[in-house]
Nucleic acid binder design. Structure first.
Lengths: 222, 222
DNA sequence: GCAAAAGTGTTACTTCTACACCCATGA
DNA sequence: TCATGGGTGTAGAAGTAACACTTTTGC
C-alpha cells in the first residue's frame, strides 16, 4: 500500500539537484564586503561565484546552508536567513539545478582565513563586485534588499561588528548597508532608544585621540 | 571534458523531488479565504492541504507555480509571488520532497468552480482554517505575513477585487488582510493619494440604499 | 596649537491617529 | 420616517529631517 502510494504519487516525477548558495556579508573599512570564490574548478573555472553546495539526503536546506558557511569560514551559529529559490531551467548551464540562496552576516575578524584560502575565497567590496556566474548577481541583489529592510526594522546589524564597537562604527555599518550617509545626531538619538545597546566604561583610543565609548549588544541571539 | 565536469561536480550528489505549494487567497464576505484541497488521494487522504504539484524538467519553479494555479482555477496571469522554500528532511513523511511555496491573490468571482470541484477544492475562511498536512500551516503563516507587509507598501490588493468596487469593499479587504479594523476617514484620506485608483461615474446600489461610487485600478500589471 | 574624531539639542515639517456628524435613499 | 451604509475635516501626537558648535587629546 505504501509502495502503491509512492508509485502513484512520487515515482513518476523528475528529481533534481538542489543547491544552496550563500551570500556572506562582512563589514570592513566602512564598506560592505562579500566573501566570494574565485573558482579554481569547473564549471566556470576562473570566474567569481558565491559559495555553494549541494543538498544531501541527510540535511535540511537550512543545515546545508550552515554547512556551506562552516566549511568556508569555520563559523557556526551565525545569523543566516533564506533569501529565495532560483529555479530557471538553464540557470546552471551544466545541469539542471534548483538553488536556494541564503544570506549570512559575519564579523570579518572571526572567520578562518586558512579555510577561506583553501577554497580560494576572497573578500570583495560590494562597490567593486565583479561579474558573477549564473544568477548569482540576482541573488546578491535580493539579499541586499532584504538586508536593507531588516537592518532598519530589526536588530540584526550586530552580527557584522565585533563584540565591542563605537557608535561611529555602528553608524558606518548602517551607512554601508543602506548605501547612504546618515545624520550623526539623528542616528544617535535613535540609537539611544535601542534597548539592546549598552554603553560600557571602556573607551576605544585607536580611531581617535579623544577616544570613543565602546558599546555592546545585550540581547544576544539565544 | 564536459562529461568529466559533470562526473566530478554534479553526479555524486543526491537528487530530490521538488514541489510547489500554492497559497491561494481570495476575498469574500469581508473575509480572507484560502482555496484548499480536501485530499481524495494519498498520501494523507481525507486531510486538508494546499494545492501542490511537482516540478518538471521542462518548467522553471515559477512556471510550475503558474501551472498548479491554472490547473486548479483556470486562471492565468495572476499575481503570484514566491514565499520561501521548505526543506526539512521529514516534512513529507512519504518521500523526501523540498517544496517552494508561492502565494496568489485572485478574485473569487473569476475562478472556475468546475475545475475546483474536480480537484475537491474548497474556499475556507482563514478564521476557520482546519489543520493542514505537512508544514502547510507554516507556509500559510509566512505567506500571510508577506501579504500584510506588501499590501501596505505596494498596490497588490486589487488582485482580490472585481474590476469595479466601492471604497467600503476596498477597506474591508484591507481590514481582512491586516486583521484589524481601520478608521474610515483616515483610510479614505490615504486612498485619495493613491494615484492608481480612479473614481468612476457609476454607483453600486446593491450594498446600500444611497449607493456608493465605484472605483477601478488604472495601473494594471502590464 | 591644531588636526581629527567625539559628543550634544532645537526647530520646522510631515505623517499618523483619534474622533462625530450629515446625506441620500429604499423600505 | 427611519434604518442603512456613504461620505466628509480638524486638531493633537509622534516621528522625521535639517542643521553647528564645543570637547578632548595625540602629535
Amino acid at each position: 500500500m505504501l509502495e502503491d502510494v509512492k508509485t502513484n504519487y512520487y515515482k513518476d516525477n523528475d528529481r533534481f539537484y538542489i543547491s544552496v548558495d550563500c551570500i556572506i556579508f562582512g563589514f570592513h573599512k566602512e564598506e560592505l564586503n562579500l566573501l566570494l570564490i574565485k573558482r579554481n574548478f569547473n564549471p566556470c573555472k576562473g570566474n567569481w561565484s558565491l559559495v555553494g553546495g549541494f543538498l544531501n539526503k541527510e540535511e535540511s536546506l537550512d543545515q546545508t546552508a550552515q554547512r556551506v558557511l562552516r566549511e568556508l569560514t569555520g563559523l557556526d551559529n551565525v545569523f543566516m536567513e533564506q533569501v529565495g529559490s532560483f529555479g530557471a531551467i538553464d540557470r546552471d548551464p551544466g545541469e539542471r539545478v534548483v538553488s536556494t540562496a541564503y544570506y549570512a552576516l559575519i564579523n570579518i575578524e572571526d572567520y578562518d582565513p586558512e579555510l577561506a584560502m583553501l577554497h580560494n575565497a576572497h573578500w570583495v567590496k560590494l562597490s567593486e563586485l565583479p561579474p558573477l556566474i549564473f544568477d548569482h548577481k540576482q541573488m546578491v541583489d535580493k539579499a541586499l534588499r532584504r538586508l536593507k529592510r531588516q537592518v532598519t526594522n530589526q536588530s540584526i546589524g550586530y552580527n557584522l561588528l565585533p563584540k565591542l564597537f563605537t557608535l561611529s562604527q555602528f553608524q558606518q555599518m548602517y551607512e554601508a548597508i543602506l548605501g547612504k550617509s546618515l545624520d550623526k545626531r539623528n542616528f544617535r538619538k535613535k540609537v539611544a532608544e535601542m534597548e539592546f545597546l549598552e554603553k560600557t566604561d571602556e573607551k576605544d583610543k585607536l580611531c581617535s585621540k579623544r577616544g570613543a565609548y565602546l558599546y555592546r549588544f545585550t540581547e544576544m541571539d539565544d
